[in-house]
């Protein structure tokens, strides 16, 4: 099969790269690194590179996952080094491993993710902590999201597994993936609104992606 998973981070200016551009950038880095990537069949063959889950533009990703299919076996650790010499600024491979034949595609596995929001404005921290506590204590939480039909509200409480404030940051574990994908920025916008903080000045990061295992969460990589 020659499939490999790579854990990578997307930080700094690379935060602003959109999903399709990221796919292209990754693919080109693979080619520059001279890795024996496999291609799809058909009229327009493309490199078999995929990501576990798109990351919202502007958000950092510290434990993102890419799946690469090679035309021949490679040594994943060497690949990681070669890729790092070829990726644009802000993209960095942290580790690589072979994907066992029976392992499902990461895109099909993702169920949860951890997030962090950093508040630069320390004066609001106390009220942020209160707002976070209220979210955790509530039975219901209506969040808002913009759609073509205007602002829609949706029930999000059951998709928040954990949320707490620590130092100047808020951490949370929420539903992520192709089935249910809770927008962390919507959650933070709500916390900000309740706490009277300015959402523009907050930096968000997705920390790790999880699958479901034995009724709990287990890191995919």
């Amino acid at each position: 099969m020659n499939k490999y998973l790579f854990k990578y981070e997307k930080t700094g200016n690379a935060r602003f790269i959109g999903h399709l551009d990221l796919l292209r950038a990754f693919g080109r880095a693979v080619s520059r690194a001279g890795l024996p990537i496999a291609y799809s069949e058909g009229f327009n063959p493309h490199r078999l590179v995929s990501f576990a889950l798109p990351l919202p533009v502007g958000m950092s990703g510290l434990g993102e996952i890419a799946a690469l299919r090679m035309a021949e076996p490679v040594e994943p650790r060497e690949c990681a080094g070669a890729l790092n010499a070829c990726l644009p600024e802000g993209l960095r491979v942290l580790a690589g491993r072979e994907m066992p034949r029976e392992e499902k595609e990461p895109a099909a596995l993702v169920r949860f993710a951890d997030f962090r929001a950093d508040f630069a404005d320390f004066s609001v921290l106390e009220s942020v902590e209160r707002a976070v506590g209220a979210v955790l204590a509530a039975n219901s939480l209506l969040l808002e999201r913009e759609s073509k039909k205007g602002v829609l509200s949706f029930e999000a409480r059951q998709d928040i597994y954990d949320i707490y404030a620590k130092g100047s940051s808020v951490f949370a574990r929420v539903s992520q993936g192709s089935a249910v994908n809770l927008r962390f920025d919507a959650l933070i916008a709500r916390v900000c609104r309740d706490a009277g903080a300015e959402p523009d000045k907050i930096k968000c990061a997705r920390l790790a992606l999880y699958k479901e295992a034995d009724g709990g969460a287990e890191e995919i990589f």
């Binding site: 200016n13 690379a14 602003f16 959109g18 551009d21 950038a25 502007g58 644009p88 802000g90």
Partner: peptide
Amino acid sequence: GILGQVQKPARYVGGEV
């Protein structure tokens, strides 16, 4: 601070290969 407000913000940041 303003890149969150615009389309295709990667146009404005550089850092390319």
